[in-house]
Design a protein around this nucleic acid. Structure first.
Lengths: 198, 198
DNA sequence: CGGCGTTTTGAGAGAGCTCAACATCGGTGG
DNA sequence: CCACCGATGTTGAGCTCTCTCAAAACGCCG
């Protein structure tokens, strides 16, 4: 769900773009919250530093994703946001977003719907990770992401990206797909996979 | 975050309890949405049946958890909710909840905050699952769940439960904890674990 | 005490990871 | 048009780590 589909136009207009150099921090733990961010290009890592100085990664936001939603409801950021490779982000100021929600219950409802859907999606992915077998994990992904016909799965990025999303190495994913195809359970095409009932 | 801490009292009063027998369905794919549910006791599985008749599990809700939040924004349920072992749930009717949000922006904001926090938590858990090594996964958990002193982690349930949350077998968790303790990285007590800087 | 669930330790096997080599594809520039 | 290059895709072989199965110690509660 893209920002432009639910964020009120007035708030969208208030968006501020910012280009981050590799290694640069967008905000740090304890900084007063400015608003929510959308990743336009690159990746932004949310990290927290533990007592012994090690970094723990909380989340890695990629292009088109929103992060720091919780900042709307907290006076300060609860972690650091850093980009390793550089990134472009857009900031939607907290005050503008919140006042839009207060004046426009419809907008608030849309935002809640987005958040609720994201929760559902994350829970499903987490459930997927409970599946040990690479093959079954791929099956779970395919079944859940099948289109309206229940059989066709369109692939967005590369298989390598998909491997990351599934928590597998790309080799394991290639092998699982090759096996499933060899046994006739799926049929692979350029940018899609078709499930076959057997 | 318990329901009673954020759901307006008027809506809470409208909650309806329901006892489910083992194997019973709470709702099915396509049923008109009634509202959101809270699990009081037992477990409720959200499942979807794929084209070839296999079940894919989307989520398993346990005691005190809320599920079907997305139902507030959809006319029909998008999956089945079934309990294997029996459960008690409480239903908060959709109309009551939504009207409370419309009349009371404060309540809407609280709900958004809950959802945003849940997203953050889920993302962190998902990131945790990207860690292969049992030991490092435990480290990630401990670092993230350390109290205000950055060193003490209070354990809520049993270690077995924790193993499930971490996506490890209980044996693997026991061994990882034993190793960390043997190397002096942590100190274990009755219901807590203390990190030691070294 | 007896029973049940959690915690703990042991041994073995399997599955995915790691490292490595190679194929394939798309884009770029001579 | 072709050579080159980088990234993706693919396959092979070995190893490590966790899972699985098993057994026993421990703690709690009736």
């Amino acid at each position: 769900m893209a920002i432009k589909d639910w964020l009120p136009a007035t708030v969208q207009a208030a968006g501020v773009e910012r280009v981050l150099a590799p290694g640069q921090a967008l905000f740090r733990l304890g900084d007063p919250t400015a608003g929510i961010y959308e990743v336009l290009q690159g990746e932004v890592q949310m990290v927290r530093v533990d007592a012994s100085g090690r970094e723990i990664i909380l989340y890695v936001a990629s292009a088109s994703e929103i992060f720091a939603e919780a900042a709307l409801f907290s006076p300060v950021y609860r972690c650091d946001a850093v980009t390793k490779t550089g990134a472009t982000v857009r900031l939607y100021p907290k005050a503008k977003v919140l006042s839009a929600f207060r004046q426009n219950p419809q907008a608030a409802e849309s935002f809640m719907a987005i958040l609720a859907r994201e929760i559902m999606h994350l829970r499903t992915r987490l459930e997927q990770r409970n599946i040990r077998s690479a093959r079954d994990r791929v099956r779970h992904f395919l079944a859940f992401n099948a289109g309206t016909d229940g059989r066709t799965v369109l692939l967005r990025g590369t298989l390598k990206d998909l491997a990351g999303e599934l928590g597998l190495t790309h080799e394991a994913l290639y092998r699982a797909l090759a096996d499933l195809a060899a046994e006739g359970e799926i049929k692979r095409s350029k940018n899609k996979i078709v499930l076959r009932n057997h």
